[in-house]
Design a protein around this nucleic acid. Structure first.
Ligand SMILES: Nc1ncnc2c1ncn2[C@@H]1O[C@H](COP(=O)(O)O)[C@@H](O)[C@H]1O
Ligand SMILES: Nc1ncnc2c1ncn2[C@@H]1O[C@H](COP(=O)(O)O)[C@@H](O)[C@H]1O
Ligand SMILES: [Zn+2]
Ligand SMILES: [Zn+2]
Lengths: 299, 299
DNA sequence: TATTCCGATAGTGAC
DNA sequence: GTCACTATCGGAATGAG
């Protein structure tokens, strides 16, 4: 009963860690595979379609945690809930329903408890980085650049899937379709279809709970049965959510301060779309988000 | 189901207001009657044992509410919960199990929802005063003096009853009894018995809910099934409780400030006896108060 | 800063 | 992080001869 009810595939559970999976080293090949976010006919990815990431280039890591320590920490979190994401990193082929894309550097998955219509996680596979705090990990420019590149791909996938889910309701798309139907309108002058990518946000939580570094790729609607309490909501609509574009954070960025972030999570509930304040009345916010969702999807 | 389960007598209910009780004037005699707080053999007071209070001396009332307004307010609050105490004032004879003492100026009753082992209320009978806020009413020196005198009597009754309830457990009393038993000890040199009056506190709530002026006469233990939430507790152990001895309050006394008093009611729970902080964990405080009560009663 | 009922919210432990 | 359980908190009603 600990698995989500609204999705089809299995997710890693603490006791599922296999004894043979303890040495995430020695990659043999590099290959990238991408699947549609939801493809009714897509066959599960074959096991040999995945490979592992070589340890990062010997350029001096900025992290405070040397790889030996990271390995030790990796052992510590393995098998407990905080370490559940390692399974996607080391064994993406085991979760064909969850894994959208695998590269030597990253795994892109569907969040098992999505807090919005689209909610993906981008996981780096480098053991030298994947146990670092995001603020530390993204102080490494090369690593940050790599993650930004992959996050952009993920955001495009997310936007495409959002379009698929919302498309028929979109007013801007309807306008475009009508114009196209009339014919005779130069392509450049067609009304633009809806910019779904603009509805996708990419970033981290200032204080992640899951041990392995992950970047949230999430639609902004916060319309999900899995968004169940204030902390869920505020972790995405307040500065607790740190856009990937804002990295690296300057040394005195207020978002590094624990007190500031605890305050963000306890803030009163404010509609992300219209700014209405619901105080602590989460149920009322949820009802309101239903209405906002319908308006937003029809934009 | 709206009446307390832990006491025997009936209490006023809104619908019990009788049509003939609307003119609390024209006293015919002055008589004072006092009953033991609990006297197993005491017969209910006879109806004619009670009389009503003459309107106060024509000396200028300090109140902002002239008697005509007070009368109107009296009409307004009659019949709703905020006005329930008027029944004791006008018809003390109807509540023989609740009324302990009746004078021309006051009625002393047992609180129907006692927040401690002993919890009495002293009610003034003067319509010119009984709807005033305590801070206003006790700006009248003569009225304050009268109430202090009666409160002192009430506190003595409360102390006596507390002695009756706790006496057998008291270490100081045991010491005194032993010394007396030995004989030959001059009366002056006997160990003092426990000073129960010192365990009784007398004062008001800074923002009363019951409309008619009342002074709480309460033992300090806060050991009662009826003390059920933070507001109950903090209204007696923080500066929200204003000792009668502190009146009249100076104009800029912080205790007049609503914000200050709201803060007091929301304060974290702190044991009145040992200072231990229980945060918001009321159930734990209650458990702790059980232990403290046994230690306190054995002092 | 009345009591009572009741549902929403918040905090806790998870072997 | 989720889940299940419980405690705490917060609003509404309280009346109707
Ligand atoms: N077993 C899992 N598989 C996939 N996603 C998960 C799993 N457990 C938790 N999550 C998600 O991981 C994210 C961790 O959030 P955070 O650590 O606050 O950045 C949340 O959005 C969870 O819904
Ligand atoms: N019907 C009643 N009869 C006697 N005491 C009452 C009644 N209703 C409330 N009380 C008490 O009156 C007090 C009013 O407290 P407050 O207005 O806060 O000073 C509380 O201690 C209540 O327990
Ligand atoms: Zn809104
Ligand atoms: Zn204590």
């Amino acid at each position: 009963m600990t698995e989500p009810v609204d999705d089809e595939g299995k997710i890693p559970r603490p006791e599922s860690a296999s004894p043979g999976s303890r040495h995430p080293t020695a990659p043999e090949a590099e290959k990238t595979t991408t699947q549609a976010v939801t493809s009714p006919t897509s066959a599960p990815a074959k096991r040999n379609a995945f490979t592992e990431l070589m340890a990062p280039k010997p350029k001096a890591p900025i992290s405070q945690a040397p790889q030996s320590m990271a390995s030790k920490a990796s052992q510590i979190v393995r098998g407990v809930w905080r370490g559940a994401l390692i399974e996607y990193i080391e064994h993406p082929e085991r979760f064909p329903d969850k894994v959208l894309r695998v590269t030597p550097n990253t795994v892109l998955i569907k969040d098992a408890f999505p807090k919005a219509t689209i909610h993906l996680l981008l996981l780096p596979r480098s053991p030298a980085h994947y146990l670092l705090h995001p603020h530390s990990a993204f102080a490494d420019p090369a690593f940050l650049a790599m993650m930004r590149e992959e996050a952009a791909v993920g955001a495009q996938l997310a936007a495409a899937e959002l379009a698929r889910k919302l498309g028929p309701s979109s007013a801007s798309n309807r306008a475009r379709d009508e114009a196209m139907g009339k014919g005779g309108v130069p392509f450049d002058e067609l009304p633009a279809g809806r910019d779904y990518a603009a509805e996708i946000r990419v970033g981290t939580h200032a204080h992640p709970s899951m041990a392995h570094l992950h970047v949230h790729i999430i639609s902004r609607d916060m319309h999900s049965e899995r968004a169940r309490h204030k902390k869920h909501y505020n972790s995405f609509v307040t500065p607790f959510f740190v856009p990937l574009a804002d990295y690296p954070l300057v040394e005195d960025d207020v978002r590094r301060e624990t007190g500031f972030q605890n305050g963000n999570l306890k803030k009163e509930l404010v509609c992300w779309r219209c700014g209405q304040n619901f105080g602590a009345r989460f149920a009322e916010l949820k009802k309101h988000l239903e209405v906002e969702f319908e308006a937003w999807r029809a934009e």
